[in-house]
Simulated assay, not measured.
Amino acid sequence: MKLEKLFFTVILFTVLLLGCSDETTDDSDISNAFDTSKIYEELNIPYGTEERQRFDLYLPANRTSATKTVILIHGGGWTSGSKEDMNPIKVLINQELKDIAVVNMNYRLADANNKPYPMQIEDITSVVNFLKDNKTKYSISEDIGFIGTSAGAHLSLLWSYAFDNDKNVDMVCSIVGPTNLTDPAYLNNTNPILQNLLDLFGIEPTTEFLEEVSPFHQVTSTAPPTILFYGGQDPLIPTTQGTDLRDKLQSLNVTHEFTLYENAGHGWVGLELLDTWSKLKAYIEIHL
């Protein structure tokens, strides 16, 4: 969704205006993969055989086997978008959370012949397994966090709640992510754009299937700390997608934080945007 690109472009623009940048990537040659004292960057690392199965890796200087990784998952209604859309948030992490590694991944896009589930969840699993298999090479731990926007937030929550079998996820962030496909606000919606996106999961899916692909129905008391951001005027993500998950996390005693920007839509700017990064940064520092 184009609004997501605007959302994170404004984040980067704001950071640049504030002048908080001393990131160095000039010394990121291939030999630095084994020199843990230096920053290392590698782009388009294949984790599968298809063109979309690529991710970018950013490793901090002075990393150790305890270094944790944030995985960024872009939005785009499960059918579009790119890891490049998340580059601004990668820059923020590199600038202000300098001891954290970052993975910015692409995943296979859904279309009429390829449903988003389980295909995109399987791609996340492949990336996580790749990181585990190469943790010694890259000098990182198995501990990870997720930051996702919109459809990418849905995937981040779902994987963290239902597919993290080894309990490696320390925190997960949803920015305007769908959480419950059985929400009456979705089942009874009259928005053709929204309905086209929901139809990706099937024209007449069963309730059981919708629950299977809904983080709201998959979350348990062992879920990782979760931070949620939503807009009160979002035309694609009803407010209940955020508030219902918030309430369920509360009932399960799962550590969480929830922010609703009453007048914001599918993304926001200005002071609300700065508030989002301030809260997210603090959450990462505490929980990852």
Rank of each mutant, 00 (worst) to 15 (best):
I140D: 07
N44C: 10
G270K: 00
V127D: 07
E96N: 11
N189E: 13
K68D: 06
I193T: 14
S28R: 12
K167F: 11
S21K: 13
S21M: 12
L57K: 00
R52S: 10
D22H: 13
D29K: 14
F201V: 06
T206R: 03
V172W: 01
Y161H: 01
L273A: 09
I144T: 05
A110I: 08
T64C: 02
G81R: 01
D133V: 11
I89H: 00
T276K: 09
H256K: 04
L288C: 07
D164I: 03
I284A: 11
Q53H: 10
L187D: 08
S156I: 05
P60N: 05
E84Q: 12
N191S: 13
E204K: 15
I140C: 09
D234Y: 04
G76I: 05
P88M: 03
E122S: 11
P184M: 07
K248Y: 01
F34A: 15
A162G: 01
N87I: 13
T14W: 08
G76K: 04
E262D: 14
L200N: 08
L157W: 07
G19N: 10
A61C: 03
N134V: 06
E262F: 04
D22R: 08
I124Y: 01
F130D: 08
T136D: 15
L200M: 06
L17K: 06
V213S: 05
E272V: 03
N113T: 11
Y161S: 02
T222G: 12
L3V: 10
L197Q: 15
C173N: 10
T64R: 04
K248N: 04
L6R: 12
L181F: 15
K98D: 02
G231T: 00
S31V: 12
Y138V: 04
T69F: 02
D26W: 12
H154I: 03
K68V: 06
N129D: 14
M119I: 15
L236Q: 09
A151Y: 02
Y186M: 07
N263P: 05
T240C: 00
D56L: 01
M1D: 13
D27N: 15
P46G: 06
L228Q: 02
M119Q: 14
K90H: 07
T136L: 09
D29R: 12
E96G: 06
F8E: 00
D199N: 15
I30Q: 12
N134T: 07
I227G: 03
L194Y: 12
L252F: 05
L198S: 10
E211V: 06
L249S: 07
D26G: 15
F201L: 08
S150Y: 04
T182M: 06
D133E: 15
W277Q: 08
T190S: 11
T79I: 13
E4H: 03
Y58I: 05
S174G: 04
W159K: 05
L273C: 05
I71V: 07
Q95V: 02
D247F: 01
M119R: 13
R108H: 03
T149A: 14
N165C: 07
S221I: 08
H74C: 00
L157A: 03
T79R: 14
